[in-house]
Amino acid sequence: MVWQGKVHEFSSNLGLVKTIDISSNNLTGQIPNEITKLHELLRLDLSNNSLVGEIPRDIGQMAELLTLNLSRNMFSGEIPSSMSKMNRLNDLDVSYNKLSGRVPSSTQLQSFPPERFTGNVELCGLPTAKKCLEDEDQGVPPVGDSKGDAEGTGELQRWFYIGGATGFATGFWIVCGALLLNRRGRHAFFNFMIA
């Protein structure tokens, strides 16, 4: 690295780096695979550059990563399946690239808002709005779209109202019965209401 006119080489202490933010620098080329060896890295921001190629397959080895922003580049190919192992990731943005295929299944990746995946025309599967071809071939209905879901919701709502009405009627008659049978309680209640 050239810094203040001097060439500096980082090798042994590179593993201590916690944050790399080289966003908006007009960088070109591919992400070097060696970056995946930075196992202690917490934040990586390569957004708003002109990076190409695929996201490194072994990016999932960066298990400590909390923030990963690869948005607004020209990455292509699929999101590596190893990313489903990144359990600590709480901020991900891969929007506006040329990514394709299914978003790997994991509770972590599916928890991000769809906007973090927009601008990738060929990307499909949750949390994106686009269904994958395999899902359409198998006849997998989208969540909340099937007739059975609507019927189940109507049935649940009907029982909710029946239960609510029954509970109200029971409570009403318990209070009225207690007031009718308990003379002292009835007088105290009416004195309280008048006061």
Rank of each mutant, 00 (worst) to 15 (best):
S11R: 09
N25F: 02
M62N: 01
F112W: 10
I22P: 03
L109N: 02
S12P: 01
N90C: 13
L38R: 00
Q108E: 15
R102S: 09
T128Q: 04
L123W: 03
T19E: 12
L179I: 11
V140P: 01
H39K: 14
D58W: 00
D58V: 00
Q138H: 12
A63D: 11
E78A: 14
L14H: 01
S95N: 06
F10N: 01
E40K: 08
N26K: 12
G15F: 01
Q138K: 15
W173I: 15
S47G: 07
F75E: 02
M193A: 15
M1H: 04
I35F: 01
N90G: 11
S23H: 07
I194L: 13
A195I: 11
L92V: 02
L126E: 13
L179Q: 04
P114R: 10
I22L: 05
D149E: 15
R57M: 02
A195M: 15
I59Y: 00
A195L: 13
K37M: 06
E34N: 00
L92S: 05
I194Q: 15
L38A: 04
S12R: 08
E155L: 09
N33A: 04
K6E: 15
D135F: 07
E54I: 00
I174N: 14
L99C: 07
N182F: 08
K18T: 06
M62D: 02
K18Q: 11
P104L: 09
N182V: 07
F192S: 10
G163E: 09
L181V: 08
A178V: 04
